[in-house]
Computed example of a mutant assay.
Amino acid sequence: MKPYENYLIISDLDGTIIPHGGHISAANKAAIAEFVAGGGHFGIATGRTPEAAAGYLAGVEITAPSIFFNGSMLYDWQRHEILAARALHGPVLQSGETDDAIWPRFAAHCLEKFPEACIEVYTADSCNIISRPEHDDPRLPHEYYVYRHCPLDEVADLAKTPWLKFFVCDEPSHLKQLEAEAEAMGTSAVSNHFYSEANYHEFVAQGVSKGAMLAEIRKLPAYRDVKIIALGDYFNDQALLEQADIGIASGNAHEAVQAAADITGCRVEEDLIVWLLQNFDAIAKK
């Protein structure tokens, strides 16, 4: 029997195995290769799109279904196939119809209320920036995103272009106000929304999270009897760590995420996958 058979590692990227502004280290890549060669399954769970993640994953063998858009998509990396997707929806009206127009109404309100924010609508194949180009998130030119600028009207029909994620980048004080606006307009009640960084606030469908999509992985025949080890660092990873058999927070993780994890490992700069394999026997007994 190989040493890592019947184990799946599913890891967040930024702040967990990728230092902010950096890349996956050669040491972490070698550790992932060792884990897979030893019979283990390796997947990722990220807020990124598959295309945006791919730029960081050259030389990394992704062998398990992976989670994107912070839980809105389950994707087969090897087959380039969407296994499941969860789009934003509005409240159900008395007529029985769904008021999906609540999201473009909210987006229009955000454009007016937060004129210096970068506001992005994520569909399955693109990041659509509906705010003014001069307010773009500074990360975008240095990342691997497929993105375009377009007016809100071009993506306002959710029946034709389902929204997997609505994203706002702005000052933290403005994002606190954004939460109040979401509560007042009703989008808070029909979504799961959270901070993925201090200046990033994201909305996905109600009930969607990395942890909820992990439950979908467990339903797949190949993973029903596999012990799952999850790695993460921020609020959008908390449900993932809680739903895994063993949840590991990086040493730089937010204190609330460390509290929710079973174990706290080393900092992202110190190669968390390497640390995991060095301590695997003790961790597997948790």
Rank of each mutant, 00 (worst) to 15 (best):
E134H: 05
A189K: 06
C266R: 08
G251Y: 06
C110M: 14
Y147Q: 07
G39Y: 12
Y234G: 00
L272A: 10
L8C: 09
T49R: 08
E270T: 12
N6Q: 13
H80S: 07
M213R: 10
L93V: 03
F106S: 03
L140G: 02
R79N: 13
I24M: 08
L277S: 04
I119Y: 03
K165C: 00
A26I: 10
D12N: 12
A84C: 05
W275D: 12
A182F: 07
P19N: 09
G232C: 05
A108M: 03
P19Q: 09
I129S: 02
A156E: 01
F166H: 03
H80P: 00
Q94A: 13
K227M: 12
L214H: 11
T264F: 12
C110D: 01
C169T: 06
K113S: 14
A31K: 03
Q238V: 09
D12Y: 08
I18L: 11
D100N: 15
I24C: 02
Q258R: 14
E97A: 10
E134S: 06
F106D: 00
D271W: 07
A256F: 09
A26W: 02
P221Y: 08
R267H: 15
A215N: 11
F35N: 03
E202K: 00
K160N: 01
V121K: 00
M185I: 07
R218D: 07
Y56E: 09
A182W: 02
D137V: 02
E181A: 12
A26Q: 13
A198C: 07
G207F: 14
I102E: 01
S72H: 07
Y75K: 10
N70L: 05
D157Y: 02
S191N: 09
E97P: 00
E181N: 06
A85W: 02
G43E: 12
Q278D: 15
E270W: 10
A180S: 14
A124H: 14
D262V: 11
K176I: 05
G43N: 07
A159Q: 13
L93S: 05
A239W: 04
E81Q: 13
L13Y: 09
I10A: 09
A230Q: 08
G15I: 10
H174N: 15
R224C: 07
I228Q: 08
R79T: 03
G43C: 04
G59D: 11
